[in-house]
Design a binder for these strands. Structure first.
Lengths: 333, 333
DNA sequence: AACAAGCGGTGAAACGATTCAATTCCACAA
DNA sequence: TTGTGGAATTGAATCGTTTCACCGCTTGTT
């Protein structure tokens, strides 16, 4: 079979304990021995057996990442951030797509328990779920990703979605728009709910009228469908704000197909500022979130929680969204 | 700490062997004992330690997925396919981004060995690498993803890149283009090399002149940079074919910024047919690959290889690319 | 010379499951 | 009563690490 510690020890003429030290505490081994053992390890192509290591030490070096859908460019960026940060700390990442289904989410959490992950980074698909306590009881750290928590007994990394909603409406209002359509997904999604809060708050202050257009899934196809509903509104809005860029792309296509000009006839604003916004038919104005940074920060926070569990102070980090103006929004005529 | 087999055994008044049998071979245990032990397990909330189980049995239920970059929409789709298929079989997936660096790739392979994955799905960043043999010797199955292998001793799932290159040039030639720029990455990437073969073969037949413009990384930024090189060519080509859509988006932006009209001044053709092609400034014609299907098929193949290692027949599956014509390519004036 | 301190290194005891040869149990036949 | 065979159960060995008490050896101090 594959070579093990004992083989290396025999070959290098030392004890297994010493080889283990070379691996885990190189500083306590004499340089001469260190080098010899390292050479043997390289020669034999030895890689320690993770199970045995973890069995003995009680801890794995893996974390789970549960997101609604990596295919959503925002989460793709987040995932890269998580992966890069974890890799830097020599952690491996399990990728799980919950598709915003609580059932799938729970199934994945069970799998992650079985895999004995050290921690879990999760974007909950639902605001209330008790499963997390179950994980904690088993000694698995949990940190919330792209979700705020009022509960100070856990870490969270989020973007201020309320502020994002405000920023959007403030921008459109400042351009003179008084009737705005807000195209978004189900309110059960925490981010959606928060953005709506911001939208409504800013609308009240700026005396803007909001027509909410609800879609079931926040993807491009549903955006195109939503255009029919928008065109059927009693009064055609002069600006449209979409819950994310995917939705906005769909809306853009629907509008263009319907013969509307952007931004001359209607201004369009997205959310997430994904990379393709620049290359869109009309370069898309959007609310930018630091997705990659979000992932990196979350992973670092989670891992440090895992490793210093004693004196770890839970942190709730909140990033600020930013308005990025491109060609799709302009002054109301 | 958490309860273990011994605790259960003591509590139920049986030996650890019996408890293990209750878990793994309930049929050999007498009904009376079975029931008693199961009740004890439930009472204590006992969950077997996966490490110990796997250490002894030698097998895990995890696979590794190594791709150049999940942030590339093509691989994002592939990853979703892999994840969905693996999840259906109760396997968990480790996500690894090699960034087309052999060094990173090898580092990740070591990590995967440590994690004792059952199999690895990899898109090699380099055509020649011996590390895979190393994995096989350790009993880890390896299947090639988006890469063909002439070696019938391993599974591979790929798309016919040579044909893709041909399709592209045949399309452009049929529109009357005689000078075509081929914007692509390093030939060390197998897909790139194959597409080039197809390009050259079709060009020869159609009597088309190809100017190759090489970039280091196949992303949007480098596409924009490449435009300078294209504009500096002795003779401006009437069509540009890009190694992937990301590159094409960059080229598109560069061309538009330089005042060129697409497709009137120059036709532009991409590769991968990613979802945003439709929403681009000029809807992008492209060569489409069945990315999600590729991922699903690869994962199923790998897992079946892992589980029936004895009588497993290695398969090399090759999908066919398809031309998708949108607005960015047209007849030469 | 005696002793302490420190460094390198050793090897056996965990970790928590699975496995399997050995043992006990029990019913039934001789 | 003894013997037999099969089913149920046992418990020690095993997987490949990490950890830790302990042992020699060298060096420095008094």
């Amino acid at each position: 079979m594959s070579t093990n510690l004992r083989d290396v020890a025999r070959q290098a003429g030392v004890s297994v304990g010493t080889v283990s030290n070379v691996l885990n505490r190189p500083d306590v081994v004499s340089p001469k021995t260190l080098e010899r053992v390292q050479k043997t390890i390289a020669d034999l192509g030895f890689v320690p057996n993770g199970f045995a290591r973890q069995l003995r030490s009680g801890y794995s070096r893996t974390i789970g990442l549960v997101v609604p859908d990596v295919a959503n460019p925002f989460f793709t960026e987040v995932a890269r951030g998580v992966e890069d940060a974890a890799s830097k700390r020599d952690y491996a990442v399990f990728l799980c797509n919950s598709d915003e289904s609580l059932e799938k989410e729970n199934k994945y959490l069970s799998v992650l328990i079985q895999q004995q992950v050290r921690g879990v980074l999760i974007t909950p698909s639902d605001s209330k779920s008790h499963q997390y306590e179950n994980l904690r009881e088993r000694g698995i750290s949990v940190a919330l990703l792209d979700t705020e928590t009022k509960n100070s007994s856990q870490c969270s990394v989020s973007v201020d979605d309320v502020r994002g909603g405000e920023l959007a409406i403030e921008h459109l209002a400042s351009l003179g728009h008084k009737e705005i359509a807000w195209v978004t997904g189900p309110e059960t999604i925490p981010q959606v709910a928060d953005r709506t809060v911001g939208v409504m708050r800013a609308a009240k202050i700026a005396k803007v009228e909001i027509s909410t257009v609800r879609v079931a899934l926040m993807n491009s196809a549903q955006g195109t469908d939503a255009v029919k509903k928008i065109l059927a509104l009693k009064k055609m809005p002069s600006a449209i704000f979409c819950g994310n860029d995917l939705l906005a792309f769909g809306v853009m296509r629907g509008l263009l197909d319907a013969g509307k000009k952007i931004p001359e006839d209607v201004s369009l604003l997205g959310y997430d500022d994904i990379a393709f916004g620049n290359s869109a038919a009309v370069p898309l104005s959007s609310i930018s979130q630091p997705a990659y940074q979000l992932g990196v920060t979350a992973a670092e926070l989670l891992i440090s929680e895992c490793e210093e569990s004693e004196d770890h102070a839970h942190q709730q980090i909140k990033f600020q969204p930013q308005l990025v103006v491109r060609a799709s929004t302009t002054k109301k005529k």
